[in-house]
Amino acid sequence: MTVLEVNHLKAYFFLEAGEVKAVDDVSFSIERGETLGLAGESGCGKSTTAYALLNLLPYPGRIVSGEVLLDGEDLTKKSPDEMRQIRWDEISMVFQGAMNALNPVLRVGDQIVEAITLHEDISVDEAYKKMEDILEVVGVDPTRASNYPHEFSGGMKQRVMIAMALVTEPKVLIADEPTTALDVTVEAQVLKLLKSLQKKFQLSVILITHDLATIAEACDRVAIMYAGQIVELADVVTIFKERLHPYTEGLIRSVPSLLGTEQLVHIPGAPPGLVTPPAGCRFHPRCPIATDICIQQEPEFREIKEKHYVACHHANQLWGKNVWK
């Protein structure tokens, strides 16, 4: 069952220097209970996509066109008041560095209770009970609810943030780099927790990260973003074993593995500016196999095999080839 469907979403920032096309025609959907990874380099638009889904784009950004359908209802058409109810109730978020988003002068438990009472019509006593339950679920001792954020470690604070995001039992959780600032052992704990909560609540998760190893560990499907667009979308095994876009190929071959790696690849150059992105395929200036058609014509984001989408003119010729030497 599809929970969230994003169709041709465009979100631009309107600056004096021009429109920054941070998210430019992005489409994907997410099923109930599924984890979708959104991966790409910094500045590729993955966080902007998350903010756009929540209708939370900071000024001067706004959604230009497209739909975000949550159970068939278009979130881009909602008023700010309606959105405030939908956020947290239906679609929740844990942002990058979220552990620093806790209010330092309020007790941790009180902050969670505040979130509950704003969204549910229950008594304060019931809210406190609920808060203690959710802390238990995320593995934080409920007696620590009366502590202040500075008394918690980074991993514990991240657990509290996850508790807060899930206490209203949303359908979709957007997690933007939820473990980037954490040590690997803590990251392993947090992702394991997320996975078990996902089963428990039949939660759909959009996991945004630049760390492909984490994607490989935690996701069912993966969307690779480049310069504001999704260039490849498939299940996680296909992305890692049968990818077809040269950018995906370069990105995955640039990551060292703990098990030892052959020579790593590096992609020359840097991502383009998004005010005037390159014509044709946006990746062509850095692509080792670009031809004239790549410069002239934007490749269509098409389904090349069942549920495997690629935007590359040369995708058909790329089976099993390493184009980066």
Partner: peptide, 9 residues
């Protein structure tokens, strides 16, 4: 063991 490995298989 805690280090993620970029290989989903």
């Amino acid at each position: 063991s805690a280090v993620p490995i970029p290989d989903p298989t």
